[in-house]
Amino acid sequence: MAEKKNEKKGIVMVEALNQALMQEMTRDNNVIILGEDVGKDGGVFRVTDKLIEKFGEERVIDTPLAESTIVGASIGLAISGYKPIAEIQFSGFIPSAFDQMINHLSRMRWRSRGRYSCAVVIRSPNGGGVKALEHHSESLEAVYAHIPGLKVVIPSTPYNAKGLLISAIRDPDPVLFLEPIKVYRAIREIVPEEPYTIPLGKARIIKEGTHVTIIGWGAMIKTLIDVQNSIDIDLEIIDLQTISPLDTETIINSVKKTKRCVIVHEAARSCGFGAELAAQVYENAILHLKAPVVRVTGFDTTMPLGKLEKYYIPDANRIIEGIKEVLKF
């Protein structure tokens, strides 16, 4: 059934992620899933749907409601030889586990001089756009990207979600895998049935272009494609895919070619990941630039609830304005 559906209309990101988990758990008995409601309920977004039926409750574990220990226990489980995939139910609950992430998960390799490592994947939704409750629509990726020793991955489509998650699970280092909540069921795409990997730390040029390099990730990618379809300006669209470690080379080569750069993100502006990207562009390509880098971002406020979130998240109008800005020069 699933296969037929895939052939005809493709599958959504939730299904692609589920496929990746199913296949990796089949491949490696040490892969286990733990988190709140990941078992019988299949996760509140159904990403872990039916996994408990196939792998049992020893490998798909409903835990007590305790984010810090979901991550903290994953560290111990990893040292005992397991490959834990911890789910944090919503983006605003990751900070409860932040101490374990910044103080332990990301530095156990360093602290033990390589004797122990924590090859843990933490999966969590990211961003807004679905009119959720407070604390359910956060985009804190820049905060996590600032942590040495932690990789931060954000897929944008069903296809790259599957390949990136499989790579994250096979990676020897801890990976925070942030799934854009808005894309979970918004895009349908043909996804190969068999397992495949997409390397971490590599950006992807979605569309080559000559006028402006425009960089985004996660849910912003669909908006960028919609923007391109509505204007005559020839954009080179880069989907970062991995925030940390950053693929500086792809960005710099593109900017050297187009000489103009717009960065788009949903998160708050100041100290957002766009600031690092702009710094990289200035450090490595300032003499190639014809215009200052423009950032189109959320605001330095709390993420609003449902009524105002569409005004917070960059939309086509604001992005087009940003593109026009770099073309003034």
């Binding site: 903290g72 560290i75 489980l77 040292i79 030889g81 834990p84 374990q100």
Partner: peptide
């Protein structure tokens, strides 16, 4: 960091038990 080792110990012992 005080007490942050306790979840690691619990996870480690849990892993041994599971194995």
């Amino acid at each position: 960091p005080v007490s942050s080792q306790i979840p690691h110990a619990v996870g480690l012992a849990w892993g041994f038990k599971k194995k």
